[in-house]
């Protein structure tokens, strides 16, 4: 199943799928007062948030389109399009660090990413920097074995930065292509935990000054308006370069990513649409918006 189908499949599962409904409303209706209210409700219900919704509505008002559907799509694609590809450095190793709040899917995403790089023929090193959560190391180790990657870990409770240092150092000396660092889930309002994350960055920069080349913030599609705050604080602390939006195969729409892209300019780089390894997909704005908005129509075609 291709990405498009999978995403559509995920959306189909929910009968009152938000973007589907938008598609239906806007196809038949010109942009007027009633449509405006309905769209407002639908955007809010998709976790796009009050501010981003108001922005989108004001854009629609400005253009006052006959084809509100096409215009909405254009606006959404525009918000989501920028720098959606990975920033791969010229010299290896390519260091990626995964960050996020508890339970967003960091460890699973690490495993899937490793597998993705392996399928491209790259040599991957995984660093188990989550030394806090019980059995997090065991969980990641299983993923590393599945992805046939080198696994670097210390004991539970060890210094996360030391693990990161060893992982990066190992990759550099053995000429490996990619290092993926899994960090412990942390709520962004816990200052000491955010300090720890900054320390990881400082320590690996002693080995590779430009590392980490990507800092990916993993966000659960179920996340509401707090996602914006998460992105903001993580960005300030460790300069997040991209979002991985996980669990999009449920009924949640992940509209918060639109708010994040709009308010903070952080691009989405990957989406997770299922449990298996190939369900981590590079993010393609037009596909994403098409699949979300067209829904049933694509099926009819």
């Amino acid at each position: 199943m291709g990405f498009f189908d999978k995403l559509k499949d995920g959306l189909k599962k929910s009968r009152d799928s938000f973007f589907n409904t938008i598609g239906r409303i806007l196809k038949t209706k010109k942009f007027d007062k009633d449509t405006r209210d309905e769209i407002e409700e639908l955007l809010i219900s998709a976790d796009v948030g009050v501010e981003a919704t108001e922005y989108i509505l004001s854009r629609l008002e400005e253009e006052n389109p006959e084809d509100a559907f096409g215009t909405l799509k254009k606006i959404l694609v525009e918000i989501l399009s920028s720098n959606n590809k990975l920033n791969v450095p010229d010299e290896k190793p390519f260091v990626i660090s995964m960050v996020g709040v508890n339970g967003s899917g960091k460890t699973t995403t690490c495993g899937k990413l490793a597998q993705m790089f392996r399928s491209e023929g790259k040599q991957v090193v995984i660093g188990a920097c989550d030394t806090f959560r019980a059995a997090a190391i065991d969980q990641l180790k299983i993923w590393a074995e599945r992805a046939n990657s080198t696994f670097i870990a210390h004991m539970e409770g060890a210094d996360a930065a030391a693990v990161a240092y060893d992982a990066v150092n190992h990759a550099l000396s053995k000429g490996k292509d990619v290092v993926i660092l899994d960090t412990a889930g942390r709520l962004h309002n816990k200052k000491h935990l955010m300090d720890e994350l900054q320390k990881i960055g400082r320590v690996i920069q002693k080995v590779i000054p430009a590392a980490p080349h990507e800092v990916l913030l993993v966000i659960d599609a179920v996340t509401g308006q707090n996602g914006l705050q998460q992105a903001k604080v993580f960005k300030e602390a460790v300069n997040v370069t991209g979002i991985v939006l996980t669990k999009l195969d449920g009924t949640a729409k992940g509209g918060i990513a639109i708010a994040i892209a709009k308010e903070l300019g952080i691009p989405i780089k990957f989406i997770g649409v299922g449990e298996s390894v190939e369900d981590l997909k590079p993010f393609v704005p037009s596909d994403f918006v098409d699949a979300l908005m067209l829904g049933d129509e694509v099926e009819d075609a």
């Binding site: 659960d220 599609a221 179920v222 509401g224 996602g227 009924t251 949640a252």
Partner: peptide, 12 residues
């Protein structure tokens, strides 16, 4: 239920 959940918490 995650306190950070958005509008979809109702559905699940």
């Amino acid at each position: 239920v995650d306190a950070m959940a958005g509008q979809d918490a109702v559905n699940s």
